[in-house]
């Protein structure tokens, strides 16, 4: 077994683009769910807004790639208003139901044959990233970085952009949450009526939180799309939202660092298990006695089991996540 290889891959995933775009989306979910208590199960739809905002520049509008940012912002605001106006006056559960349905709707609309000319159907769009590639200061084919964090030139560029955005957005959220604005949204999470009786327009704050979190999701979708060089509708399905939510809980809710480190650990764990299993069954299926435990075609499924087990153990030992506050968590029961 090549432990050095496993270690290298794990470390690369730990700081990789996947972790970066997960972190951006998780920061957004953290604003909505961790701080404001809005149960958004449709973060994938906000990510799709970002990705398709970029994709539409080449596919439909035929304008510079930079227009993708304002286009995506408009899409995010439309989506947030669409799900927020009917549900934010109601209890949190309604937003959860509506967002999960809306996210699926968004995915089905963009992959539909009817709108193939606009959204590219199930093939997606892959013609938008040339301008971005041209900005790359690195040699795309060369290797950069220090061991074990070695990446090729293009990945290095998206990594820089991705983690740069993570740092900026984390600063932004950190500033917001230690301000009176943050105090109001945290109070809304605890009890809406109390906040309303103290003269705050909670509907407006919830909408602001939904949109700010949506913008983070949008940036996440953009980083993802730029890294892959394509926009695929099925990359924005339900499971993406739930993996991100998992990563967020892992890191610890209502903590800025939690929403960054959680995704890193999630991907580290995922890639470690995947590499380990692959090497385990590389030459022959693993047998104990006469029973085949796992063979190479089952690695994907067993990997998820192991990741799940790891997460369960972590939650059993540290229910508040890595950065969460146990005392705060314990107050829930009262």
């Amino acid at each position: 077994m090549d432990w050095i290889r496993i270690f290298e891959n794990t470390m690369r995933a730990f700081a990789g683009v996947d972790a970066a775009y997960f972190a951006l989306a998780a920061i957004g979910l953290n604003v909505q769910f961790g701080y404001t208590g809005l149960l958004n199960f449709g973060q994938a739809a906000f990510m799709a807004c970002g990705a398709y905002g970029l994709g539409l520049t080449s596919q439909y509008f035929n304008v510079s790639f930079w227009w993708g940012i304002p286009i995506a912002m408009v899409l995010v605001i439309i989506l947030a208003l669409l799900v927020g106006i009917p549900t934010l006056r109601l209890r949190a559960d309604y937003l959860a139901i509506v967002t999960i349905a809306t996210a699926e709707l968004v995915r089905l609309v963009v992959r539909s044959v009817k709108f193939k000319r606009i959204f590219g159907g199930s093939d997606g769009i892959n013609t938008f990233s040339n301008e971005f590639r041209a900005l790359n200061p690195f040699q795309p084919s060369a290797q950069y970085g220090i061991w074990p964090f070695r990446y090729n030139g293009y990945t290095m560029f998206t990594l820089l952009v991705g983690w740069g955005l993570v740092v900026m957005i984390a600063m932004f959220v950190w500033l917001l949450m230690r301000s009176p604005w943050g105090r109001v949204v945290k109070a809304i999470r605890e009890d809406e009526d109390a906040v309303r009786s103290l003269g705050k327009n909670i509907y407006s704050y919830k909408m602001q939180s939904l949109i700010i979190g949506g913008f983070c999701g949008m940036l996440s979708g953009m980083v993802f799309a730029l890294d892959r060089g394509s926009v695929q509708p099925d990359n924005y399905s339900r499971d993406v939202t739930f993996y991100i939510l998992t990563a967020l809980v892992l890191g610890g809710m209502a903590r800025v660092m939690g929403s960054i480190v959680g995704p890193m650990m999630f991907w580290g764990l995922y890639v470690f298990c995947d590499n380990f299993l692959r090497q385990l069954v590389q030459s022959a299926p693993l047998r104990v006695g006469g029973v085949t435990i796992i063979q190479s075609t089952q690695v994907g499924a067993v990997n998820y089991m192991l990741v799940g087990l790891g997460l369960i153990l972590l939650m059993a030992k540290r229910p508040q996540g890595v950065f969460g506050n146990r005392q705060e968590m314990a107050l829930d029961g009262r």
Binding site: P180, R183, V184, K186, A187, R189, E190, D191, D193, A194, V195, S197, L198, K200, E328, L331, D332, R334
Partner: peptide, 14 residues
């Protein structure tokens, strides 16, 4: 309706 996960002073400042 005390806001349990906020400190007493944060409750007040709200």
């Amino acid at each position: 309706k005390s806001l349990t996960k906020l400190s007493v002073i944060e409750n007040m400042k709200l």
